[in-house]
Amino acid sequence: MPWGGALLASILQNTLNALQWGSFYSLIALGYCLVYGVLLLINFAHGDVYMVGAYIAFFVATFLLASGGLPGWVVLAVTVPITMVLTAAVGVTLERVAYRPLRRKGAHRLYVVVTALMCGIILENGNLALLGAASRAFPELVTTTVFSLGDVKLTNLKVAVIVVAIGSFLILETIVSRTKIGMAMRALSYDRFALPLMGIPPDTVIVFTFVLGSSFAALAGLLFAMSYPVLDPYMGAMVGWKAFIAAVVGGIGEIRGAFAGGFLLGFVEIMVAAFLPSTFRDLIAFTILLFILWMKPTGLFGVARFQKI
């Protein structure tokens, strides 16, 4: 094959790789973005909620596989909603027991952010204490099939991950811009004080925000577990941090920004690893992101916002 063809194949292949890898960042970044957008709270526990999502998916899937001769795709179809609901419950619990009391007492946002960090550490170490340090293998629910388009290889899983990420973005974008709860979320983010005067309970809106963010983190966790099937309690920490950075670079508070930021980070990471020595990956990737923020401190899609309190 001519050299040009090989290069093209490699670019195409790496584009697919980047789309898959960026999908996880995007799905997690969406959750950061939702909570930040509504509460101006950086929910640093979010990466660990995603880890919890992966573990919940693991237990639900292994339980279902063990308890009846269900075919893999049925197990998957049942695992998805159960995982989303249970993980959402975890997210809402965090809101209820950790963030809401502080908000009620009028604590400075800094304390809430630190609380979020601590919640993340508690989730990680709680998992460690509960389940031990051993890694776990996620069962293969659907056989991974490899398709070849010339030299470019595609798997059903890869396609599914990318489609789910894009679908989730569209759903969230619709909820936020078109539905009444979405409108309430936006209103809450601009002025929390005025919302109850329209008869809308702010707590319900906040809980709904956590439900959305956590259930999409669960989806990310499940898909991640299927794609990289070794789970450990710290799996959420680094990915969570990076997704948060992605959300900021995209313009935190903007759904489109978080989505684009996640894919951007995925692309930069993969392309650097592909065409430059992979040792430089994070160095170059984050230098690029830093440069973007330097050029546009509000992020790609963000607009400067002045909050009068």
């Binding site: 409108m183 309430a184 936006r186 329209m198 008869g199 809308i200």
Partner: peptide, 16 residues
């Protein structure tokens, strides 16, 4: 809500 249109400002209330 300064970043929502006038119409949306009113619609939030109707939603309630």
């Amino acid at each position: 809500w300064n970043d929502m249109t006038v119409l949306d400002n009113i619609r939030v209330a109707h939603h309630s």
